[in-house]
């Protein structure tokens, strides 16, 4: 895979985002990072191979702020070749504590911001021919998880949106897909599960993912494949990278 000469926007500089940025940069891409925490992006930028990488602060919980920011990015950096949406919050809450404002916040960050970025980046003049988009979903979108209604619903919404948008944007030559990671060794996952350490639920979950816990690099590999021409006939679908969890 070779992304030389390609400009890729990547949202989220966490575990999966950082690993994906590093891989894509090592394959020649120029990376534009978006995250609400500038220090985190600068840390990732310092690890990237190649030149011309940059970052912009973006608060994905304020969906209205995305359009003007992307207009500025296109003006300063030119049209882009790819977009990867890794930003998201784990959001573990029992139903009785999941009020509307909480649900809306999760949907804003995990889903509405994704659609908004796709809307803005697929306007004429914002993208180059062969534009590719990948969103990070979750196996929870298929199997659900106790206390993760908002999170799983947001990831299911992303999968459904990608199925629709792939059809709508195909005439423009744009492909869209999602990757659904199983349990992955990231700071977000650790935060979401540490109160359950040693419980039966956690042990059963671990057993179902019989190839073991994914590393962020495993997810990055799938994203790179979906952004590349190797997957030129793949669109509107979700690729699980889950150590066997969905089929166990």
């Amino acid at each position: 895979m070779d992304f030389t000469g390609k400009t890729i926007v990547l949202a989220g500089a966490g575990g999966i985002g950082a690993a994906t940025a590093e891989l894509l940069a090592s394959l020649g891409a120029r990376m534009i990072l978006l995250d609400v925490v500038e220090e985190k992006m600068k840390e990732v930028l310092s690890t990237l191979e190649g030149e011309g990488h940059t970052c912009y602060v973006c608060d994905f919980s304020v969906v209205e702020s995305i359009e003007p920011l992307l207009a500025q990015i296109i003006k300063e950096q030119g049209p882009v070749d790819g977009y990867v949406h890794t930003t998201g919050i784990g959001a573990v809450r029992p139903l009785k504590m999941s009020k509307y404002d909480f649900m809306l916040r999760v949907m804003n960050i995990n889903f509405f911001s994704f659609v908004e970025v796709v809307r803005c980046l697929t306007k004429k003049g914002s993208f180059n021919a062969g534009m590719n988009i990948v969103g990070i979903s979750a196996v929870g979108a298929f199997i659900g998880n106790s206390t993760k209604t908002a999170y799983c619903a947001s990831k299911s919404a992303m999968n459904s949106a990608v199925r629709c948008l792939a059809k709508e944007l195909a005439p423009k030559g744009i492909r869209l897909n999602t990757v659904a990671p199983g349990a992955t060794d990231t700071p977000m996952a650790k935060e979401a599960t540490d109160y359950r350490d040693g419980t039966d639920e956690q042990k059963i979950n671990a057993m179902r993912q019989y190839l073991g816990t994914c590393q962020p690099e495993d997810i990055a590999d799938a994203v790179a494949f979906l952004l590349s021409d190797l997957s030129r006939m793949v669109t509107g679908t979700c690729m699980p990278v889950d150590g066997g969890k969905l089929t166990s």
Partner: peptide, 22 residues
């Protein structure tokens, strides 16, 4: 474990305190 999770959320929402699993 569900009650413990609710406790984490309550501490955050009502008291602005981060309660860890530990």
């Amino acid at each position: 474990s569900m009650a413990k999770l609710s406790l984490i959320v309550m501490m955050d929402d009502e008291f602005g305190k981060k309660l860890t699993g530990e």
